[in-house]
């Protein structure tokens, strides 16, 4: 075990997989000479050279399409977007080509591709740079979507993603890059896709979260404990495939659920989780499943308003009180 920051764990996964498999390469804006917009790829150009660590011009649709084409004929590209926000201009490539080529070709083609970037809110970066894109992408059959909260999971899941034969979208977070945690050194350590983790055990309510919101949920749980409320936290880690068994098992124990996520409340992964709980554990529920989400408006720049719009621990606590009929 080594204590690594989240960004170092992501980097370690890429380095190990690139050392392991010549077909794996990295492409994106500022990934090479600049050492990464968020320093995730620092040192990788020196280590692997410009053949395998490739600086791309600002052409998200272009280099996404190119990576899909390269994957189609046997390479295993890792694409870094500066943030997931900018993947929107490559949306057609992801939706119509990455996700569909296998099916349209009758199963002749496989697209082993990883798309990765920071996702969700950062700090006062305004409405165009604060999107939670997992909700758009998890909707699409043919894609897999991961959103780890912890450095060890970031490393283990990214390694699984790189070894997967499907397009895998890997959601990081600018506000998580500095988070430290113990990470296994073993190059064979991987975290399988579609397995949630219980990051805090509890008995009164299940809080289901992913990515940065797991840390906010932990904060909320500490506050709730002071009131005598025992919250269990399910870190989904993987949004598609989604580990509904672990969610149902937790809800069967607590009988109450709050889904906490960044991103708007209309539809999305939180609504999907709520639907699965009501379908699969209806008789176990003592209250409706509630969601603590970003408010239903574009992200404002103003710092106070931004904090008001983003889901905070207080919003999770408020929803926990409601499912416990304590408000």
């Amino acid at each position: 075990m080594t204590v690594l920051r989240y960004r170092e764990a992501v980097r370690a996964a890429m380095i190990e997989e690139m050392e392991r498999d010549e077909r794996v390469y990295l492409v994106g804006e500022e990934v090479g000479h600049y050492q990464g917009a968020y320093k995730v790829t620092e040192g990788m150009l020196d280590k692997f050279g410009s053949r395998r660590v490739i600086d791309a011009p600002i052409t998200e649709s272009g280099f996404t399409g190119i990576s899909i084409g390269a994957a189609m004929v046997g390479l295993r590209p890792i694409v870094e977007y500066m943030t997931w926000n900018f993947s929107a201009v490559a949306f057609d490539q992801i939706l119509n080509n990455a996700a569909k080529l296998r099916q349209m070709s009758g199963g002749q083609l496989t697209i082993p591709l990883v798309l990765r970037a920071p996702n969700g809110s950062a700090r006062q970066v305004g409405s165009q740079h604060s999107h939670s894109m997992e909700h758009f992408y998890a909707h699409i059959p043919g894609l897999k979507v991961l959103a780890p909260a912890m450095p060890a999971d970031a490393k283990g899941l990214l390694k699984s993603a790189i070894r997967d034969d499907n397009p895998v979208l890997f959601m990081e977070s600018e506000t998580l890059y500095g988070v430290k945690g113990e990470v296994p050194d073993d190059p064979d350590f991987i975290v399988p896709l579609g397995v949630a983790s219980i990051v805090r055990e509890g008995t009164d309510v299940s809080i289901i979260a992913w990515s940065r919101m797991v840390h906010v949920a932990l904060e909320a749980a500490a506050e709730l404990e002071k009131e005598g409320i025992s919250a269990e936290i399910v870190d989904l880690r993987s949004l598609r495939p989604l580990d509904e068994e672990t969610v149902v098992r937790s809800v069967t124990k607590t009988h109450r659920a709050v889904v906490a996520h960044e991103g708007w409340p209309y539809g999305g992964v939180g609504a999907e989780v709520a639907d699965r709980i009501q379908r699969l554990a209806f008789d176990e529920l003592d209250a409706p499943v509630l969601r603590a989400t970003t408010l239903d408006v574009p992200m404002p720049y103003n710092a106070r308003l931004e904090q008001y719009v983003i889901p905070q621990a207080a919003r999770i606590i408020e929803n926990v009180h409601r499912v416990l009929y304590k408000s």
């Binding site: 649709s61 272009g62 280099f63 996404t64 399409g65 190119i66 990576s67 899909i68 084409g69 390269a70 994957a71 189609m72 004929v73 046997g74 390479l75 057609d92 490539q93 119509n96 080509n97």
Partner: peptide, 12 residues
Amino acid sequence: GHIPIAVGTAFA
């Protein structure tokens, strides 16, 4: 939409 994909095969 297929034009970058084809460029990707050339890249490979």
